[in-house]
Nucleic acid binder design. Sequence first.
DNA 1: CTGAAAGCGCTTACAG
DNA 2: CTGAAAGCGCTTACAG
Lengths: 354, 354
Amino acid sequence: MSSAASDAGEQLRAKLASRRPTMKDVATLAQVSLSTVSRFVNGDPGRPELVARIQDAIDLLGYRRDLTASTLRRADRASASVGVLVADVGNPFFAAVLRGVEEVARARGSLTVAASSDEDPARERDLAAALIARRIDGLIVVPAAEDSSYLRPERQVGVPLAFIDRPPRFLDADTVLSDNAAGTATATRHLLDAGHSRIGFLGDRERIFTCAERLRGYREAIGTVDPALIRLELDEAGVEAATRSLLTLPDPPTALLTSQNLLTMGAIRALRRLGAQHRVALVGFDDIPLADAVEPSVTVVAQRPVDLGRRAAELLFDRIDGYDGPSRRMIVETQLIERESSHLRPRVSPQRAS
Amino acid sequence: MSSAASDAGEQLRAKLASRRPTMKDVATLAQVSLSTVSRFVNGDPGRPELVARIQDAIDLLGYRRDLTASTLRRADRASASVGVLVADVGNPFFAAVLRGVEEVARARGSLTVAASSDEDPARERDLAAALIARRIDGLIVVPAAEDSSYLRPERQVGVPLAFIDRPPRFLDADTVLSDNAAGTATATRHLLDAGHSRIGFLGDRERIFTCAERLRGYREAIGTVDPALIRLELDEAGVEAATRSLLTLPDPPTALLTSQNLLTMGAIRALRRLGAQHRVALVGFDDIPLADAVEPSVTVVAQRPVDLGRRAAELLFDRIDGYDGPSRRMIVETQLIERESSHLRPRVSPQRAS
DNA sequence: CTGAAAGCGCTTACAG
DNA sequence: CTGAAAGCGCTTACAG
């Protein structure tokens, strides 16, 4: 770059003060038109001579393109970002889902905007609106709301949508689910095979699809259900009391099934505190860190959360790329990881032995 | 709304087909000017009569404001979103950090755009550029790069910046850190007090600030350091071999210190596999799920990742709100959570006993 | 209080 | 290949 141009750059830079340089500034400094800079920035170079001037001007000014302005004007309206709405980005399960989405998005040059609904339907709606107002190219939702039809207008207008972990209700859209019922059915049969007939079920909120499905798999596999053995609406703290209460029943369960990761951790702690971890069998839904290292190690129905995220992102990008066929549903298989806690044989409980 | 207006709405709706309705569509349907709709949408109502017409038109069309266009034009340029760059959104530690940031951002009406650098400096730079190109109001970074000066132009131009977990190098910016060295020093003294003199240190990458600091705390507390007891550049898989190798030294360590969550989990597994978990003491940096439920339960130096995220977000929003003072550094204290694994007394190893 | 007009930073036909 | 001009959806002085 000539020293004259460099001086011009310095002057322009000073003039800009703390303003972010624009494409127009680059054009002025490089002494070309705005269109030429735009074409260059978009990968349509032009004469080598001009290219060099433009690149120098960009470097000198520290120019960064404003993608929001670009999105606004371009024909395809692509913002190169997708939104993800989960219950809690801090929960390891959803964190892994998010990671799966991000991998696929990144391979496609897209960024991921994540938000936590905290299982609050109103917050979910607000966040969905906030994401869509920012012109994301598509939205992935783990629905907290029982009714996803609030997204119908967005769908109509062509915002690609995909659901993970729980299907939308009153709305037709691509969905990726774990095989929840099959997972708990397998786990339940596994416990029945080990000789357990009284199996307790510890679940979170029945209105959440995954809990309802996992309960259904348990019910179907077990045959005759004793409602006294089912405890729902639990959180990590509530599990301890529920476990204690189950184990002090006149005819207590000899095995427990927990419906999700936080409840499994709560149940592990509760059994240990009761000194019952080697007496009462346990299977948890969703694998957890160190499940293999506690004593006894804990059998789980492992999900594949990263895959859930990846698959949903793939379905979403299909739509972003123009696929307009009927909505699809994918099931990601769960896997029973047999560890020690499910190989405990049923024993007569202390109360009954006395 | 009159039926004539409603008909007009239906017609406009049909005409829009699958196009997203704009403020102009609303203005046309409500028979007011664009400015009036804009003012209404921005909370400056006007005559009740017009307000009603505008609200009806918005509802009928399913109008959603385009925030990217709004950001482009408005005086303050606020996009109501902040960016966060961590090593891996799927790692529970960073997931918790993200959650903390999101809480504060949400309270401020901002969305959070998260991305994973995977400890790759080049990717970090790309992602930072991608975020800034989307006009985020501020950027929070867990730096993978050894040199953060690539962000200087952004800083110059007024993009608020905050760093978490590791300080920026060659750049002056607000930073929130755990007291890493103090944490490992406390842990080391705790082990020394229990009678251990040979304490192994298992770390990840020394070029990462947190690892270096935690190593420093260990070195300073222990006094005379035996380099044979320090193993670095480990990942979760490599920890097992490193543990085995340490324990088969002629004069093996009687206690281990691990520098982060994944390594602690690896060490727990390794010790169990070697049958050494009740013989070799262990303290991990960063708490992990079920650390309280393994046998022996694992003593840790707990960090407060959600607080790290919150504090950094608060510093960031101060800047977004216009604070322009010198950069600040906040230390979030760690806490030694004493469990069983650090209360094991040093024992002569089997080899030496034989 | 309301509306016409300019313009945010960019892309994209359209001429030359 | 290059440049002048229109316009994406919105906000914001400025008149009336």
